[in-house]
Amino acid sequence: MFLFLVSLAVIPILPGMLFLKIFYRRNHRPRPGILHAYILGMLLCLVFCGTINLLCVMLHKTLQECVIWYSMGILWMQLIAGVVLTFMWKPTEESLGEFLRKHKMALTEFIKQQWDRCRRSFWAVGILGVFCILVLLQMVGICRNGYVYMAGDMTLEMVQSFLEHDSLYQIHPLTGQAYEAGVPMRIQILCLPTLYAALCSLFGLAPQLLVWTLMPVYFLICSYLVYYLLARRLFGERMLHVGCFMVLVGLIIGWGTYAYGMDGLGLIYRGFRGESIRAGILLPYVIGQVLEHKWWSVLLCVGTELFIVWTLYGMGTCAFVAIGFLVIALIKGDFSDKSGKEASVCGK
């Protein structure tokens, strides 16, 4: 379990940083930080898993072979990202030690400055504290619930079926008998059941624990990270406003569980499903990225949606939203006067 949690926390970072280094140059403003790298890395991993799943399904591989492909692929991804980043890395910001030496400040003086900042923005710290408590309560709720909204879903049965028979889409998950007519390719392309089964196999986790508890908690946290990035985009550096936005997001998700299709129901009671990941992570991230004109990230989100949600030949909600905002950008003349309009959208 510990290894699994550490892997979840660490694996997306290097690929995400490499993605940022390659597609967003040093002089691109505003510069994305570690949170962006993490989210992009997670999306890259999902796209990678989707590709591997598709290959395994088409080549009729067993689950264990799929697990080997996943693990080797992720390891190679980390290695390549690490090596390339090492050669590409040029530190552009001074470290904390250099900052202190440069400004001739003692460490205690620096801490005192930060404490004074917190006291001046007491309300911001307070609101962020309320938000943290809210998120904690939701995470505890998911862990204690031990049950999900099951209508229209059979992810757990599929995962268990894959593990039980070491095969992909050979055994009917709801009856335990072999398929007669089979499963449509539009379902086989969706990688989440295979990914969950592979994670269970690799880390020795019980399928129900992983699918119903761990993954929903993980995607809930990622969702709040994405909403935080969106809040920073919308409200800038004003932490009070950002905190207020985050608290409202937390309340909406916590209280918006009244109907099928609501974000709250998806994230709290079905957080392992592709639709919940799309609603909680992909779509807010797409909105944030189109506002910054970061089209490679948007493309990555569209590609991720292809592998986790049934779409119209790859054209899903992310593509729709991106095109909608692109049309608005064109109407506003963003691309006719790059130095002026683009600066006005990108937080200046």
Binding site: Y227, L230, V249, I252, I253, G256, G261, D263, E275, R278, A279, L283, P284, I287, T317, F320, V321, G324
Partner: peptide, 8 residues
Amino acid sequence: WSMVPVTA
């Protein structure tokens, strides 16, 4: 309604 950013 996923196409509308309701929560945001």
